[in-house]
């Protein structure tokens, strides 16, 4: 029945070859990971008694989520939400507008080397630090209130948007760009005709996405004094008004869902 059999008897066991071939390396990685895990868990400093004390608080906390208190007194919640929305919109617009020159400068195929390096370092700087740290400094400089939050979020937007814009430009089609250049167009015409059509649809989608991020971030810059719903949320927590906090969180979730839906819709419409 079987033809050209090379072996008279075949192996009866088979083990999957290990992912890391060298045995010593494999075992030292496993061992190292285990040791790290133990050390890290030890550093957690889990205080059972403290956790136990926290449980009734957690119960009260989650209990007061139902029902959430939407009918807040003096309308502070809605004021905070609206402030967050305005903050998110204006910082997205400002951030995107500032990102365009920086993004163009950070694209290797457009900018001379020194401009490229400068723009890249601006991007790297604003990407490394979370918006909250930017917000702390903005609050120090501009005082409490939404202006500080606006500055922090705009800076964060630059790091995000300019980087993606630059990458998109670098990946755009060389031949289209050359074809337009060959017509004798000047630099601005060239950008307008060759680069803009290629990167525009994605950029519109990304700005809506960033608006979504900025709204979410605006909920936290308030914690350090940057205005918006975060300030309201922080107050609610420190006053133990958990039902108000729950209402705020639910409103945030709802708005984020709407924004997410809107952005996917807009992206489809643009493309």
């Amino acid at each position: 029945m079987i033809k050209n059999t090379a072996l008279s008897s075949y192996p009866v066991v088979w083990d999957k070859p290990p992912f890391i071939k060298r045995a010593w390396l494999r075992w030292s990685i496993i061992l190292g990971a285990l040791i790290y895990l133990i050390l890290a868990l030890a550093s957690m400093d889990i205080n059972i008694q403290r956790v136990m004390e926290g449980l009734p608080r957690a119960q009260r906390f989650f209990g007061s989520f139902f029902p959430p208190n939407f009918a807040d007194n003096q309308g502070v919640v809605w004021e905070g939400i609206l402030e967050s929305i305005w903050m998110a919109i204006i910082s997205t617009v400002a951030g995107v507008l500032l990102s365009i020159p920086i993004g163009l400068g950070a694209a290797r195929n457009l900018a001379p080397f020194w401009v490229y390096m400068m723009c890249r370092s601006i991007i790297a700087g604003s990407r490394t630090f979370p918006e909250i740290i930017l917000a702390i400094f903005a609050v120090k400089l501009f005082g409490f209130g939404p202006f500080a939050g606006f500055i922090a979020l705009s800076l964060g937007t630059i790091g995000f948007f300019a980087k993606l814009l630059a990458e998109d430009i670098e990946n755009s089609s060389e031949s289209q760009a050359e074809a337009v250049k060959a017509t004798g167009a000047n630099w601005f015409q060239w950008i307008n005709y060759a680069i803009q059509p290629q990167v525009m649809p994605r950029m519109i989608g990304l700005s809506v996405y960033r608006l979504d991020i900025n709204f979410r971030e605006s909920a936290v810059v308030g914690i350090v004094g940057g205005g918006g719903i975060g300030a309201t949320l922080n107050t609610a927590f420190s006053r133990y008004e958990f039902d108000v906090a729950a209402a705020i969180l639910l409103v945030i979730i709802a708005i984020v869902m709407v924004l997410e839906y809107a952005s996917s819709f807009l992206r489809k419409w643009v493309q």
Partner: peptide, 24 residues
């Protein structure tokens, strides 16, 4: 969605209330 919508700082704010301040 709910995990994504709430920033880690807000989660931390809530958890500090429940578990007390600290790494956990």
């Amino acid at each position: 969605v709910s995990s994504r919508s709430v920033n880690s700082l807000i989660w931390a704010l809530m958890l500090v209330f429940i578990l007390g301040p600290g790494v956990l």
